[in-house]
Design a protein around this nucleic acid. Structure first.
Length: 333
DNA sequence: ATGGTTTTTACTGCGTC
DNA sequence: GACGCGGTAAAAACCAT
């Protein structure tokens, strides 16, 4: 008996005695439970009575009653971005047992078969989710989105799945729309044009349609892309300082009051305001650069910019013609 | 489907470097 | 001549009805 206690002494503080079972080999009643190996062993003869016991002890320590209540859990937190919330079983493809002895081919076959059955039992209803969440991961990493966006996008998708909105439509389209809506609700200034290229085989049209379906059927009320975040996004891209950005926000405020922003692409209006602000603060960017950053055309920039100067009665802007410094040249030279 | 609105496409000439 | 800019007309895309 001392021998086996000594054998398991590496788990000294967790070592427990358990007298509820009887050893089938020697009729001994003293059992040793080793949580680190997940085994219950007869203290007398060392027979492993039970293996793969679940460790029910806590992985944390509570320092007050609040923590005691708060932290009652085992395992990692449930993760929305995994189809089964991370609560899965896994039977690995092993060829050795815990002692390092090679398994017989029959045993190995049995485990392979178990593993296959275990996997198969998890397919079916969550197969859709697995595909969708895999695509979500891909989009998320391609757009370098923060973790929270992935989580809320997967929540949106789960709701859509529950409401049977995915049937008959493409999984990729709905998940892309979920990402877009997650960005919108989180205030990340991404447009459809930003999301679409990161999607696989989803046309801009389909993406837009999917988004509208989700908004309608899930009663989502995403905030509009506000001009301020758009301005800062463009300003970052075009390397315009805070002075220019602040000026642009002032211009936008007055444009809003004048009511010339409704129905227009917010990106275009922001870019035009930023263009004016850039010129005024001595950081002129070419209209082509503005257009490229705003994913529109110089003509549209001109139209918005003209509107802004005219209706807002800004001081006429004297633009010195000739080559201007192109930020983009730096990257494509 | 339709009509109104915005955006894009394509093309022009002008001024500066 | 290359480049940036202003303007225009027509086509295309968009959106609410």
């Amino acid at each position: 008996m001392e021998f086996f206690q000594k054998l398991y002494s590496h788990t000294n503080e967790n070592l427990e005695s358990d007298n509820t079972v009887v050893c089938s080999e020697c009729d001994g009643t003293d059992m040793i439970v080793d949580p680190s190996r997940g085994e219950r062993v007869c203290a007398n003869c060392g027979l492993v009575i039970e293996s793969r016991i679940i460790d029910q002890s806590q992985e944390w320590r509570a320092y007050n009653s609040e923590e005691e209540n708060d932290r009652a859990r085992v395992g990692s937190p449930a993760n929305n971005m995994i189809a089964d919330y991370g609560l899965r079983t896994h039977i690995s493809n092993i060829s050795f047992d815990a002692n390092g002895t090679r398994l017989t081919s029959e045993k190995r076959y049995e485990f392979t078969r178990l593993s296959r059955l275990d996997n198969r039992s998890r397919q079916g209803e969550i197969r859709n989710l697995r595909i969708a969440l895999k695509e979500l991961q891909r989009i998320k990493s391609q757009l370098e989105l923060p973790e929270g966006i992935g989580q809320s996008a997967s929540l949106i998708y789960r709701r859509a799945l529950k409401k049977d909105l995915v049937r008959g439509r493409s999984i990729d389209g709905i998940i892309a729309a979920s990402v877009y809506l997650a960005c919108r609700t989180a205030g990340i200034p991404f447009t459809l044009k930003d999301i679409q290229p990161a999607c696989s085989n989803i046309s801009p049209k389909e993406l837009g349609r999917s988004v509208r379906i989700l908004i309608r059927d899930l009663n989502l009320r995403p905030a509009n892309n506000d001009f301020i975040s758009l301005i800062h996004r463009l300003g970052e891209q075009l390397e315009l300082n805070m002075e220019a950005r602040n000026l642009a926000t002032v211009i936008i405020e007055r444009a809003k009051q004048a009511g010339i922003t409704v129905g227009k692409n917010p990106m275009s209006v922001s870019a035009a305001a930023l263009y004016i602000a850039g010129v005024k603060t001595g950081q002129r960017r070419t209209q082509l650069d503005m257009a490229a950053a705003a994913k529109t055309t110089p003509v549209t920039i001109r139209n918005r910019f003209k509107e802004l100067t005219e209706i807002l009665d800004l001081e006429p802007i004297k633009i010195k013609r000739g080559p201007a410094t192109s930020v983009l040249q730096k990257y494509f030279a």
